[in-house]
Computed example of a mutant assay.
Amino acid sequence: MPVTELFQKSTKQKKKKSSVREWLDSVLFAVVAATIIRWLFFSAFVIPTPSMENSLLVGDYLFVSRLHYGTTTPITPLQVPLTHQTIWGTKIPSYVDWIQLPQFRLSGFVDVKNGDVIVFNLPVEHPNAFTKYSNVLPDLHPHPTDLRSNYIKRCVAIAGDQLEVKGGQVYVNGEIQVNPARMQSEYIVSVSTPVNEENVFHKNGISDYSQFTETFNDSIAANDEFGYVVKTTSDLASKLKTYDFVKRIEPIMLSKGLKEPFLFPTTDLLDWNKDNYGPLTIPKKGTKVTLTGSNIDLYGEIIKNYEGSEGIVLESGRITQNGKPLSQYTFKQDYYFMMGDNRHDSADSRYWGFVPKDHIVGKAVFVWMSIDPNPTNFFNKIRWDRIFRTIK
């Protein structure tokens, strides 16, 4: 080829992209970049329920770091980008599970600690477990591990810990644990006269309350007593005591030995309730346990569903592997025990059990926006005092 012709071809201008092509390229780049950031670095979530109040409120938008504990590789690769379970605004599944990849966790820079606020995939959406817990969580549906519903709770016990709740107070390894600063409990507020609920409750940031009469609970409310059942923090409960029309305030606690239905584990051998729970030991990787009638109810489900062991059958209080009774077992991964800060209004590990490490999504870091779903007026729609608040 003559040099002049080569030069002419090299100096020809490239064909200019159409505006539609440029727009499509920009959209594709944005989707790919957002997908990588969402998977590798951090994800945005919104709080839909009051289970973490008063630490996190319904309408809080938060960033969750995937770097802290190490992000996990996708298990279900055939999925519409930037979706979770369904396509936006529909009930159409956003994935197909024809291909299931093994999961790996990249290196993080910290381990899960007691007191961390954590987002995780709900374990009981496992195909073998979801129907059993429908009384506690009626909207459960089976999903692959990485596409199970995202829950946020506080980790109160890590692998290897012994946990016990006594009178609503958490103990770990026999030591009393510091309660979250904004932990919410349930109180009876007895008053001498009906109150202005707007001035007394709403202005103090109390949204969850209801009236009671003496028929509420004979052991708590006396005859002819009038008042409210209020979910709030201990500080706000102390403030309510200062009002001259408040006769008394007492925390509502279930008595030790009063068995609560639908608690984990499902057994008649234990008389636990949400205020008096345990003791129990959280499974730890490499720990061997002797399986007995008393602990198969605790550990049988995780051995069957989350350990990846072949041939496990759990039936009638017995656990077998490939037809042979299993008398001992060594755990293959760490587990955690999660509780909501709204201790009387949280469907957490007390009701559905342990969270496996491979279900951990990330650590909740800070609230970047907060929108009140039920504002007193339009100007109070945004909770300005919560924007960029770190999560403790």
Rank of each mutant, 00 (worst) to 15 (best):
L122P: 03
V361S: 05
D111I: 06
E250L: 05
K241N: 08
V58W: 01
T11G: 06
Y187V: 08
R182W: 07
E250N: 12
K132I: 10
R248C: 01
T90H: 11
L101C: 09
P373G: 09
R350P: 00
T330Y: 09
F354I: 02
I92F: 08
T213H: 05
G168I: 13
V165L: 15
V195Y: 06
A30G: 13
D348Y: 13
L67C: 02
L24F: 12
N196P: 14
Q79C: 14
V3S: 11
V313N: 04
P102M: 15
E53I: 06
E214W: 13
P77L: 04
Y277K: 08
D161P: 01
Y209K: 01
S55R: 04
D334C: 01
L6R: 13
Q103K: 14
T131P: 00
D358H: 11
S185M: 12
K12W: 06
P265L: 14
E301T: 06
E214R: 06
M183I: 15
T290C: 03
N295D: 07
M369L: 14
T35S: 15
K285P: 01
R182C: 04
D224A: 06
F212K: 01
V367R: 01
F120W: 09
F29V: 05
P325C: 10
N173V: 14
I220R: 09
E22G: 09
Y209M: 04
N179G: 05
D25T: 07
A30Q: 04
I206N: 03
P325W: 13
K259R: 13
W272M: 05
S309C: 05
D60K: 04
T376F: 05
D97T: 05
N305F: 07
D345Q: 10
